[in-house]
Amino acid sequence: MSDATLVTSDLIGLYDVVFTDGGFTVRFSADGTLTPAKSGFAVSATDEQWYVPADVPFADFAAAVERLHTIYPTANAVGGWVDGQRLYLDPVEIIDDRARAEYVGRLRKQIAIYDLSASEEIRL
Rank of each mutant, 00 (worst) to 15 (best):
S117D: 14
P73E: 13
T35C: 04
D55G: 15
A4K: 10
L6E: 03
Y114R: 09
K38E: 15
R108H: 12
R67Y: 10
T46H: 00
R106Q: 14
G23W: 07
V52R: 04
V82T: 10
A59P: 09
P53A: 13
V52H: 01
T25M: 08
G80Q: 03
P53T: 09
Q110A: 07
D97H: 10
D10E: 07
A59Q: 09
G22E: 09
F24Q: 02
A54V: 05
Q49K: 08
V52E: 04
V7E: 12
Q85C: 07
E48C: 00
P36G: 06
Y103I: 04
V18A: 03
D115S: 10
V17K: 13
T25P: 02
Y88F: 15
V17A: 12
G13Y: 05
T70Y: 04
A45Y: 01
H69M: 01
R100C: 08
D10Q: 07
V78T: 09
I95W: 02
W81N: 07
W50C: 00
A63E: 11
L34S: 05
A42P: 06
R86Q: 12
V7P: 00
P73V: 11
A101G: 09
Y103A: 12
E66Q: 13
D47N: 12
L89F: 00
V17R: 14
S117F: 10
P57V: 13
T70A: 13
G79A: 15
T8I: 12
T25F: 07
V65E: 01
W81C: 03
V26P: 03
R108Q: 08
A30G: 15
A62H: 05
P73D: 12
A112C: 09
T8N: 13
W81K: 09
D83W: 02
E48Q: 05
F24T: 04
F61W: 05
W50S: 00
T46I: 02
V17Q: 14
Q85I: 11
D60A: 13
A112T: 02
D96P: 11
S117T: 15
A59L: 11
V7A: 07
L89G: 00
A101D: 06
Q49V: 12
V18M: 05
H69T: 01
A54S: 14
D90Q: 12
T46D: 06
L87Y: 00
I12Y: 11
D3K: 10
R86E: 06
S2W: 08
G22A: 09
R100H: 14
P73H: 11
P36Y: 11
A118V: 10
L11M: 08
E102N: 07
R27N: 13
V65Q: 01
L68V: 02
